[in-house]
Amino acid sequence: MTLTKAELATLLFEKVGLNKREAKEMVEVFFEEVRTALEQGDSVKLSGFGNFQLRDKPQRPGRNPKTGEEMPITARRVVTFHASQKLKAMVEEAHVGTRSE
């Protein structure tokens, strides 16, 4: 029960009328364009779905969990996703009253 690129390509074939090769490529390029924008330091705002943003995290002290040895966790840039109000509301509504995973 997982949505994958293959399933998205099938939808583009059925709903947009792309041929199977085009559909597969369109899914690939969709995610590649988002990755490229983020790689270039540009945030991505997909209205109705959510925003991908970049955060610069400073170096902080850490430990090797295996050896217990202290070693700094280097400064890095990471991606964060913030679901839109609309997506959050739809998910919340669909699961009202349910608690188990």
Binding site: T2, L3, T4, F30, V91, A94
Partner: peptide
């Protein structure tokens, strides 16, 4: 239409509690 179809499918998947995995 392709972008709309992809985002709608991703939204619907999460609404149904179904995870999305994009390698």
């Amino acid at each position: 239409l392709a972008v709309k179809t992809i985002l709608d499918a991703m939204t619907q998947s999460l609404v149904e509690g179904k995870r999305i995995e994009i390698r």
